[in-house]
Amino acid sequence: MTTTTMLDTDRALVQAATAVAKLRCRSDNHSVAAAARTADGRVFTGVNLAHFTGGPCAELVALGAAATQGEAELETIVAVGDRGRGVLPPCGRCRQVLLDYHPGIQVIVGPIDALRKLPVTDLLPDSYVWADQRLDASAIVRTGQWPMPTVPASRAASED
């Protein structure tokens, strides 16, 4: 694992998420707050939307808030639980989304007295890379058909 030294700006990001958790996480609907920072120091926050359909986590809401303001490059993110639960690691879905949208992002994790900052890639080793799996949309438009995978030593169905 590649741990990066926690800076004062990282501690301030934890404090921002903690303040949002204290202010806005007062019901079962909102129990986690997140704060994300850009390289130039802008901070975007969000809270989770607990719902029986699996509503979005606080990290995803913070990503959406940043995107709404035109910010495409986030540097660091942290999530904090309500009722003093401290810093929470992102769930698997959030780890995957963070990797796909912000592959260089650092994630603050750990107990409050031993916080550390890790690249999201360390939290999701041997990950599925969404960009590598996307279809070539222009091929679909050109041919009107989904591209078929090439299988070595295969023969056309008409040969059966």
Score class of each variant (00 low, 15 high):
residue 122 D to E: 15
residue 121 T to E: 12
residue 110 G to C: 08
residue 152 P to V: 00
residue 24 R to T: 06
residue 123 L to C: 09
residue 100 D to W: 03
residue 16 A to Q: 15
residue 106 Q to R: 15
residue 91 C to K: 04
residue 153 A to R: 09
residue 122 D to S: 15
residue 137 A to D: 08
residue 23 L to I: 06
residue 66 A to G: 09
residue 129 V to A: 12
residue 158 S to H: 09
residue 51 H to S: 15
residue 98 L to S: 02
residue 138 S to A: 13
residue 134 R to P: 00
residue 83 R to S: 12
residue 92 G to W: 07
residue 72 A to R: 13
residue 15 Q to I: 00
residue 155 R to F: 01
residue 3 T to Y: 04
residue 113 D to S: 13
residue 2 T to C: 00
residue 45 T to G: 00
residue 45 T to P: 02
residue 26 R to S: 11
residue 108 I to P: 07
residue 121 T to I: 13
residue 66 A to F: 03
residue 86 G to Q: 07
residue 115 L to G: 10
residue 53 T to A: 14
residue 138 S to V: 03
residue 22 K to G: 05
residue 35 A to T: 01
residue 58 A to I: 01
residue 104 G to H: 09
residue 133 Q to W: 07
residue 49 L to W: 06
residue 34 A to F: 12
residue 20 V to I: 15
residue 114 A to S: 15
residue 58 A to C: 06
residue 139 A to P: 01
residue 147 P to W: 09
residue 86 G to V: 04
residue 61 V to W: 04
residue 39 A to Q: 02
residue 113 D to E: 15
residue 113 D to C: 06
residue 70 G to A: 11
residue 16 A to N: 07
residue 33 A to R: 06
residue 105 I to Y: 12
residue 74 L to A: 10
residue 155 R to D: 03
residue 133 Q to C: 11
residue 129 V to E: 11
residue 38 T to I: 12
residue 13 L to T: 02
residue 13 L to Y: 02
residue 72 A to S: 12
residue 77 I to A: 08
residue 148 M to I: 09
residue 24 R to Y: 10
residue 150 T to P: 01
residue 132 D to S: 14
residue 100 D to E: 13
residue 36 A to H: 03
residue 50 A to D: 11
residue 9 T to M: 02
residue 87 V to C: 03
residue 135 L to P: 08
residue 134 R to N: 09
residue 35 A to P: 08
residue 98 L to H: 03
residue 107 V to P: 03
residue 33 A to P: 11
residue 119 P to D: 08
residue 9 T to W: 00
residue 99 L to E: 03
residue 136 D to A: 13
residue 74 L to F: 12
residue 130 W to C: 02
residue 152 P to Q: 03
residue 56 P to M: 14
residue 21 A to K: 05
residue 1 M to N: 12
residue 46 G to I: 04
residue 127 S to C: 12
residue 101 Y to F: 11
residue 40 D to F: 10
residue 96 Q to N: 07
residue 19 A to S: 14
residue 150 T to M: 08
residue 147 P to E: 10
residue 79 A to K: 04
residue 141 V to Y: 09
residue 19 A to D: 15
residue 60 L to S: 06
residue 108 I to K: 06
residue 42 R to W: 04
residue 75 E to L: 05
residue 18 T to R: 11
residue 57 C to R: 10
residue 2 T to H: 02
residue 102 H to Y: 15
residue 98 L to Q: 02
residue 8 D to G: 04
residue 42 R to T: 14
residue 157 A to I: 08
residue 142 R to W: 01
residue 24 R to G: 04
residue 8 D to N: 07
residue 138 S to T: 05
residue 3 T to N: 05
residue 78 V to A: 07
residue 60 L to H: 05
residue 17 A to V: 08
residue 7 L to D: 14
residue 80 V to A: 04
residue 65 A to M: 10
residue 35 A to N: 03
residue 39 A to F: 01
residue 94 C to H: 01
residue 54 G to Q: 08
residue 38 T to H: 09
residue 104 G to S: 13
residue 42 R to N: 11
residue 148 M to F: 05
residue 12 A to L: 08
residue 113 D to Q: 13
residue 85 R to S: 09
residue 61 V to Q: 13
residue 140 I to M: 06
residue 67 A to R: 14
residue 92 G to Q: 14
residue 154 S to N: 09
residue 37 R to V: 10
residue 12 A to V: 01
residue 144 G to E: 05
residue 123 L to K: 06
residue 127 S to F: 07
residue 119 P to R: 00
residue 46 G to M: 08
residue 40 D to A: 15
residue 159 E to M: 05
residue 9 T to S: 12
residue 74 L to D: 03
residue 70 G to N: 10
residue 124 L to F: 12
